[in-house]
């Protein structure tokens, strides 16, 4: 029934580990896009312009309500129809970055809105300007809870990179598919891919939790 072949495992492991590097590269690149773009989305919703707030709000909702896989296809295939060719990597990073920017913008907003109203009032009472209030009072308090959310989405983006295989980004899943098709063996490549994901995401999630607790303690937010 179950015949795991060790020699085959050793044969394909280097290739998979190399592909894991690509997976991390894709996750890191996509995350960089998401962190910056998410901040733009979040700040755009805090401006006084109601129209801008409404448009960005709806855009964020739209991105969050539709499958990433579909967004990847859309960005990759629609460009050429209008004469804009994107490489799989570029399309993939844009799609995944845009998708997670929508989520991160909510994390940023939540962090800011979670700071108690009394903090704004106390800042007003000692006459701090709006900029100083954000810089010295609000953001330092918004950051620790937001960092937990940001960390979770870093792990999330990492776990969503296999979807990039569908447009030919040579990350883990794509490589495992190729190995499977070449050798007609799926047990080892898919299982190893699963184990690699576990081996990276579990410790990362744990580290993020530790980091958040340590940060909160360092800032005196908990005993």
């Amino acid at each position: 029934m179950l015949d795991w072949k060790m020699d085959f495992t050793w044969e394909i492991l280097p290739r998979l580990l190399l592909a894991a590097g690509n997976t991390m590269l894709a996750a890191g690149g996509g995350y960089a896009v998401a962190v910056v773009l998410g901040l733009v989305f979040a700040l755009a919703q805090r401006t006084r312009s109601r129209t801008l707030t409404f448009i960005v709000r709806e855009l964020v909702e739209f991105i969050r309500s539709t499958p990433l896989l579909l967004q990847i296809f859309f960005i990759f295939y629609v460009g050429p129809q209008f004469g804009l060719r994107l490489s799989p990597w570029a399309a993939g990073l844009i799609a995944i970055g845009l998708h997670y920017a929508a989520y991160l913008s909510e994390v940023y907003r939540g962090g800011i809105e979670n700071v108690p109203k009394g903090q704004w009032e106390a800042a007003r009472a000692i006459n701090l300007s709006t900029v100083t209030t954000y810089r010295r009072i609000i953001i330092p308090q918004a950051l620790p809870p937001a960092l937990a959310g940001m960390g979770n989405y870093l792990v999330g983006i990492f776990k969503d990179t296999p979807m990039l295989s569908v447009i030919g980004v040579a990350e883990l899943m794509h490589t495992a598919n190729s190995i499977g098709a070449e050798n007609f063996r799926y047990l080892e490549p898919y299982t190893i891919v699963g184990l690699i994901f576990l081996a990276i995401s579990l410790p990362t999630a744990w580290l993020i939790r530790r980091f958040e607790t340590a940060l909160r303690r360092k800032m005196g937010l908990t005993r």
């Binding site: 029934m1 776990k159 296999p162 899943m173 495992a176 799926y186 047990l187 898919y190 699963g194 999630a205």
Partner: peptide, 21 residues
């Protein structure tokens, strides 16, 4: 932890291609 630690796509492929083995 297994289901949250891996990708849905990996799980789908594994259940589809490996489970029959």
């Amino acid at each position: 932890e297994i289901f949250r630690g891996t990708s849905l796509l990996v799980q789908l492929y594994w259940f589809y291609f490996v489970l029959p083995l």
